[in-house]
Amino acid sequence: MGIGRSRGTQDRPARPGSGLIPWGYLFFTVGAALLAAWLTGWRLAFLVLAELLFGLACSRAGLRFLGRPRFWLFLLLAVALGPFLLGEADAKIGPFRLSEAGFLLGVAMAGRVLALSLAFSIGLSGLSFSDFVAIFDRFRLRGLGFALALAMNLVGPLQEMALVALQTLRLRGGARRPWLALRLFLVTVVANTLHYRDDLVSAATMRAFDPNGVRGGRRRRLDNV
């Protein structure tokens, strides 16, 4: 299954140079997200630092969003609005009445957003569709992994099929009777989607795919015998 972001296929090993397995990225994401939601103050700052170090060591692609001005603008907005909107105003700078507590709360909010963004960005940049399929397989959800892989490979063809149906209806005067055209479009898209099904079921059956089986299960049983 050759799917996933900037990662390899079955023939080509994924993540060259990175020793972390998909489980590592998954645990990192879940753990870091939970800690980001729980920690406050300096502890949150240490978490951000730890995430940055982890990202530098294991997944630099996950840190790319830090180079975008839009992200920093988003963070600075949270910090800048804090003194105006939060807490009691206890300081005056020029014509503005500001709150120190509001400023600190704004910084805390921005820190939390940064920690959560790092957790998900680093984790997701290290995980591909193939990894998710493998994880579902490990949890004995082989059918769900199969459905996900199949869906990922069919997004493009389905988009194209819908576009062809739309253009066909438009060229045949669909705009003059929009409700009928919409109904025909929806029926065509769903019917064509289901037409893929028979071919896919045949292909999976011919390869003796068992959605409830475990990969390599039979061999293990024989070994035990």
């Binding site: 059918g143 459905a147 996900l148 892989a149 990922m152 069919l154 997004v155 389905l158 099904r197 079921v201």
Partner: peptide, 14 residues
Amino acid sequence: YTVRDWVTVGLFGA
């Protein structure tokens, strides 16, 4: 779930 069911789930998810 049969293979047909999983394929249908995948198609509608897609």
